[in-house]
Amino acid sequence: MTLAGTWRLRHQRYQLQGEVCEKCGSLIFPPRDVCPECEAPAKTPYTFSGRGEVYSYTTVYHPPAGFEEDAPYTVALVRLEEGPMVTAQLTDVDAEQVEIGMPVEMVTRRISAEGEEGIITYGYKFRPVLRRTRG
């Protein structure tokens, strides 16, 4: 990813910011400026809650270039509670603990770093919902 490309995607990556279609009300992620449901222009930002559940998953043992230091890691299709499906890494979880339907929440983590000298890219991952004693 180029510097400009990383920079351009910062809101969707840091905040799960997508779009809402003003015509049919569809919530869109990732943002694409055109509603996939009704094809109307859709440029109004909408920030997703970050809550969802695992729709499916797989564990990567042979990672693509740039992700070697993280392997093995689990990638999931996460169904956001607002509807859209997102592909993302799971974090703070052991591969054998992951189940279809597991509730997850978005966290912002390091996605990749260009060696020791390049920029660090941050973005969304999902983890099992933090167990809380109260609240």
């Binding site: 230091e69 993280d70 890494q89 974090t91 966290v107 912002t108 390091r110 660090i120």
Partner: peptide
């Protein structure tokens, strides 16, 4: 910290 954590991610949460 996990492999994907640093001062930015910790401060942010």
């Amino acid at each position: 910290p996990g492999l994907d954590e640093d001062t930015v991610t910790i401060a942010l949460e």
